Amino acid sequence: MIKVTRLNGDTFTLNAIFIEQVQSFPDTTISLINNKKIIIKESESEVNQLITNYYQRIGLQECLKEIGDSE
Rank of each mutant, 00 (worst) to 15 (best):
M1D: 06
M1N: 12
K3I: 04
V4E: 05
V4R: 07
V4A: 07
V4S: 03
T5D: 00
R6G: 07
R6Q: 14
R6W: 02
G9Q: 15
G9D: 14
G9T: 06
T11Q: 10
T11Y: 00
T11F: 00
T11S: 06
T13V: 06
T13M: 07
T13I: 09
T13E: 14
N15W: 02
N15D: 15
A16K: 04
I17V: 01
I17E: 05
F18G: 03
I19P: 04
Q21G: 00
Q21Y: 08
V22M: 06
V22F: 04
Q23C: 09
Q23A: 13
P26G: 07
P26W: 04
D27W: 00
D27I: 03
I30V: 03
I30H: 04
I30S: 04
I30Q: 02
L32A: 06
L32M: 02
I33P: 02
I33V: 11
N34W: 08
N34D: 15
N34Y: 10
N35M: 13
N35E: 15
K37H: 12
K37M: 08
K37L: 09
K37P: 01
I38K: 06
I38D: 01
I39A: 05
I39C: 06
I39S: 01
I40G: 07
K41Y: 00
K41Q: 13
E42D: 02
E42W: 12
S43E: 02
S43M: 05
E44G: 11
E44S: 03
S45F: 14
S45V: 09
E46M: 08
E46Y: 14
E46L: 11
N48H: 12
N48I: 06
Q49V: 07
Q49W: 03
Q49G: 05
L50M: 15
I51Y: 00
I51N: 13
T52M: 09
T52E: 14
T52D: 12
N53H: 11
N53D: 15
Y54T: 01
Y54I: 03
Y54R: 07
Y54L: 02
Y55I: 02
Y55C: 15
Q56M: 01
Q56K: 09
R57N: 11
R57Y: 11
L60D: 14
L60Y: 02
Q61R: 13
E62V: 06
E62A: 14
E62R: 15
L64M: 08
K65T: 08
K65E: 08
K65L: 04
E66K: 10
I67G: 01
I67A: 03
G68T: 05
D69H: 02
D69R: 02
D69N: 09
S70H: 08
S70Y: 11
E71S: 06
E71I: 11
E71H: 11
